[in-house]
Amino acid sequence: MASIKVQSLRKEFVTSDSTVVALENASFEASGHVFVSIVGPSGCGKSTLLNILSGIETPTSGIAEITEGDKKARNGYVFQAARLLPWRTVMDNLLFVQKDRDAETRERCQRYLEMVDLGHTANKYPGQLSGGMQQRVGIARAFSIEPDVLLMDEPFSHLDAITGRSLRKELHHIWMETRKTVLFVTHDVGEAVELSNRMVIFGQGGRLREDMKIDLPFPRDPADDAVALTKANVLRTFEELDLVAS
């Protein structure tokens, strides 16, 4: 079982004339079949946290690690923009992140493409797909390495509302099926309430402000009373914490 451990994490960015603190004394843990949303206003260090956990950036101090048993876990990262190689076909994009490229791996990639209903696009170039399809390829790529943990950085924020909604449904479905640990960064409270069973709220300056459980039955319909009420409650918490951008 994969577990995420973040302890007294601090990250600063040093520019030529100033130092910006992106994360300050952040701590939380998560493991098992959970869907953790990380919510907060822009610039609160949410994406930085994912970048550190995925190994793109290194922390200034503190601990941020994801382990599977006693070794390092494998992460599948879904980015805000799909980040596909435009000069490689969809299949080659999936193969790009694999360890091996044998027939078995190909088959697996094809399977995950079919999981997001894109089996027929394997030989197309990303430029020939719509934005929503590209994002689905990004999701298939993350799953195709059979990760222990899934990291997602506002994966639906670039999409129109309808596409976003259907992808959210799809994601929930896959999560229930694969039972992965998911860390999902978003600034959209509604999205977080709809998808997650735990919510971690960050404030300005990268401080962790609130860590709450969302105990609602799935599937959740945003129009549902209980879901709408929870969303309103969370937003009120935001106001109380003075998180709403002034």
Binding site: S54, Y77, F79, A81, R83
Partner: peptide
């Protein structure tokens, strides 16, 4: 963005350069 992506998936240097 793409080199970061490759890094998060632990893609080897040779593959990064080639692809």
């Amino acid at each position: 963005d793409l080199t970061d992506m490759a890094r998060s998936y632990n893609v080897s240097r040779a593959r990064l350069i080639r692809h």
